[in-house]
Amino acid sequence: MAELQKLLAEKLAEVIDETLENMAFISTEEVDTAQPPLLTEDMRAACLLTTAPIVMEIRLSMAEDLLRQIVETMYTIDAEDITQEQIVDLLAETLNTLAGRLMSELLPADQAFSLSLPETVVNNLNAADDNTIFATWYMADGLPISVKISAATPEELQTCLNSAQHIH
């Protein structure tokens, strides 16, 4: 399990940085998970399922101020003109992109995979979840981002990655 977490941490850090850099020229920094940031900002959350070859839920939470900042830059519009629809859509598209990149990094190139459409969810960062196999924090422009990965059967993920020869 420790090797699985190390692999997820490494790949996720790469793909989240690449995704936000490409989408909004924003760099991310990983936060020491033993000292998660004190949340003072409103967070928005979205989740999606990887439906093949393994079922996992990936949940992305981002500070609303960070989403607003990115929308403002991407659309080159004034802060007061930003709509909730743009904020939610940006969050969903960021999650969709990073989930796809993560699966491409984790699985062999000839392994097909599929993702569900992202859904916005009520943010519940402190809720205990027995199925969480990995949770981490990043900071971008001083604002928090959280990624949580859950699987009903973590062993299945481990087996899948073993067969991809990432973990021995």
Binding site: M23, G100, R101, S104, L107, F113
Partner: peptide
């Protein structure tokens, strides 16, 4: 242009007639 791409998917889509396949994030 999709987040659900890898070399196998690209080959399959090209066989079905796609001109090109790019993974997200795009540049």
């Amino acid at each position: 242009i999709s987040s659900v791409t890898n070399s196998a998917k690209t080959a399959e889509l090209k066989k079905k007639g796609a001109f090109a396949v790019i993974g997200k994030p795009i540049s």
